[in-house]
Amino acid sequence: MRSVLVVVTRQIGDVLLTTPLIRAARRQWPDARIDVLGLEGTLGMLRGNPDIHTTIAMPMRASPVRWLRLFAGLWRRYDLALVADPGDRAHLIGWVAGRERAGLLAAGGGSHWWKRRALRHAVPLAGDLGDVHVVRERLALLAPWQGHAAPESALVGPSGEALPQALRQRLAPGYVVVHTPSMWRYKQWPPDHFRELIGLLALAGRQVVLTGGPGAGDRETVAAMEGAAPPDQLVDAGVLNFNQVAELLRGAALYIGPDTSVTHLAAACGTPVLAIFGPTNPQRWAPWPADGAQPIRFQRQAPKQSIGQVTLMQATLHCVPCGKAGCEDHRDSRADCLMAITPERVAAQALELLARR
């Protein structure tokens, strides 16, 4: 293959979880041009990635004229398209761009017939309650070209970028990064729980650094932590780009956060991670440890489990994980399993991990 296009038109975390596939493609075809097509606003996770020639950003919504221009520029431009997204849009782009194609197929779905006909190699997804991690599913796209060889599976985080001077001057050795916001309510550990956790970490002598995106929801959740610890022990990192977040994470003694893209980024950076999971199945979506060479297989449910530098905590409710969008199965749903994970329990686990360092 002289040219390969990886199509991943999903969220930021999905883009990062596709980097092992990109790295494996680079190992398979060292001299090939490898490009990545994704949604605008998600490709910052790939900035500085040495395996990629260029990224192609497409809008979430586009006019028919813009779609035609995109398709005209992509038409049969690549020897191979790797469609790392089961959606119709991604498969259509793969068909336009690649002379050969391998792609993911969602569990169920009426559009499979035309997708299968367009693919040389199809990888069926296990679904939210399956036991195959999404990193493994993406790597399986290369199976026809790799045979039985096990591809390297380490994530590749964005390169570091210098932090703002005002932030650097405030950081104390051994700081802990805490990410309080979640995109969806059903993944949100309660803000009051975060406040108690921050207070307990401060009592133990730790400085807490808060991260969050530029959106109003993120800023509101971060602002709600004000006063949870003395000013010198609680730092709002402000709005950073992904490269700066990666730099901040690589200097941290520990990262604590929910099921979100920054948690995956912390794992990719090699930072010790304490992840708080609710309805999501860790066998599919647990943060992928930095050392992808070791056997990585998370349990479906365990109060605490650790692989590599990643420790994951869940509630002990019988329904965990349900694989749904919370108790009411919609994005604004409550999640009783997250409420059940107490700040005291998370703080005790965090201090244990810090003591090992």
Rank of each mutant, 00 (worst) to 15 (best):
A149F: 01
Q169H: 12
P181T: 10
W145E: 04
E196C: 08
E152G: 05
V177K: 06
V176P: 06
D192K: 09
I198Y: 13
M183Y: 10
L163D: 02
Q188T: 05
V177D: 05
A150S: 06
L167E: 08
P164Y: 11
F194E: 09
W145M: 05
A150Y: 00
K187D: 10
W189D: 01
H193R: 13
L155E: 00
A154T: 12
A172Y: 00
H193F: 11
V177Q: 07
A154P: 00
E152W: 08
Q188R: 14
A149D: 07
S153Q: 10
A150F: 03
M183G: 13
A166V: 15
P144D: 03
E152N: 00
L171C: 04
P191K: 06
W145N: 00
P144C: 06
W145D: 01
M183F: 12
P173E: 07
W189V: 04
R195Q: 15
S182V: 10
A162H: 03
A166P: 01
W184M: 01
V178E: 07
P144E: 05
L200E: 14
E196M: 09
G147S: 04
P158I: 10
F194P: 02
V176S: 02
W184I: 00
D192Q: 13
P158R: 09
L200D: 07
H193A: 15
H179L: 12
E152Q: 02
I198M: 11
F194H: 15
A166N: 11
P190M: 13
T180L: 14
L171Q: 00
L197Q: 09
L155G: 00
Q169P: 01
L171Y: 03
W184F: 12
G199F: 14
R195H: 14
P190E: 09
Q188D: 02
